[in-house]
């Protein structure tokens, strides 16, 4: 049991790193959003695998918090997607930092 907690903890920190990397290198906001979802998954996994240490019965409190977190993550994703589409409609592009010149809008 301890070992599997170890394994998932390592996996969650690696996923966290990947999420940070994804947010930083993505040019497309939808991609940033995917990376944020990945970050959320990493945090949830970490909460549960740490909350599981020692105890025989799984601790219900982190589980309840993660359940709340999943629903909050999906609401945030839905709102972000609407904002993204509104941005697309308004500007025809979806680059938050146009000065980078990743995509020249013409």
């Amino acid at each position: 049991m301890n070992h599997s907690g170890f394994v998932y903890l390592a996996a969650s920190s690696a996923l966290f790193g990947m999420g940070v990397y994804g947010v930083l290198v993505s040019a497309h906001p939808l991609r940033k959003l995917l990376s944020l979802n990945l970050l959320a998954a990493a945090v949830f996994l970490m909460l549960i695998s740490v909350g599981r240490r020692g105890a025989d019965a799984p601790d219900p409190v982190p589980q309840a918090m993660v359940l709340t977190g999943i629903v909050v993550a999906v609401s945030a994703t839905g709102f972000a997607l609407s904002l993204l589409l509104a941005l697309y409609r308004a500007t025809g592009g979806a680059d938050l930092d146009l000065d980078e010149g990743v995509v020249d809008d013409s």
Binding site: L9, S12, S13, A14
Partner: peptide, 10 residues
């Protein structure tokens, strides 16, 4: 930065 964050979390 990503490596640093991952290592910090771990």
């Amino acid at each position: 930065l990503a490596l640093l964050c991952g290592a910090l979390v771990m």
